[in-house]
């Protein structure tokens, strides 16, 4: 099963790190994966993004024109990537920073008030992991343990104390997606 995912937002939202959490976790759980940051013209226009592939077999292209799942954390990312989503694809969108909507009825949009929920948790930087939880709940690209493993790679040393909070945010995201 190949998951072709794009995570997008603006710089400072921890988008690239979010992708690395998933890829690190995938490696620890013996999956094939690739993580590639946005490049050249793709990185312009108010979005910072990365493409993450997860598969149980050799990954061919590390880039995709039609992702199967996306997380969009701001408005420019929403307008840029939702039209590219594969039919039947899933999008987790940050309701707090996305004001527009889409006409597409062949994709699933999961709205999450990621910023508000993150603030309620006491750390705005956990917004990404809330979105990540919501997407994984719906798509199931890796086991929850892989996310915890991935967090361990990204938050090492002194930063390790941030892992429980980020796991809490991830679980919250899952709960929100389950409730719809």
């Amino acid at each position: 099963m190949l998951h072709e995912m794009i995570f997008a937002g603006f710089g400072g939202q921890g988008i690239l790190t979010m992708g690395q959490i998933v890829s690190y976790g995938a490696v620890d759980n013996n999956l094939e994966t690739s993580w590639i940051p946005s490049y050249g013209p793709e990185s312009r226009g108010g979005t910072s993004n990365c493409t993450v592939m997860i598969s149980d077999e050799r990954i061919a292209s590390p880039m995709t024109a039609a992702p199967s799942a996306i997380i969009v954390m701001n408005e420019p990312s929403f307008t840029k990537f939702v039209p590219k989503l594969k039919p039947g694809g899933v999008c987790v969108a940050n309701r707090d920073l996305v004001t527009s909507d889409t006409d597409r009825d062949d994709v699933e949009i999961i709205w999450v008030e990621a910023n508000l929920e993150a603030k309620a948790l006491g750390n705005l930087m956990t917004a990404g992991n809330i979105a990540l939880g919501a997407l994984n709940e719906r798509v199931g690209f890796v086991a929850d343990k892989a996310i915890e493993d991935g967090l361990g790679h990204v938050f090492s040393g002194k930063k390790a104390k941030l892992i429980p909070l980020n796991m809490q945010a991830y679980q919250l995201g899952k709960d929100l997606a389950r409730k719809g």
Partner: peptide, 10 residues
């Protein structure tokens, strides 16, 4: 190139 250089894989 930068694709392979900047990309992360196992």
């Amino acid at each position: 190139d930068g694709v392979i250089g900047q990309m992360m894989e196992p």
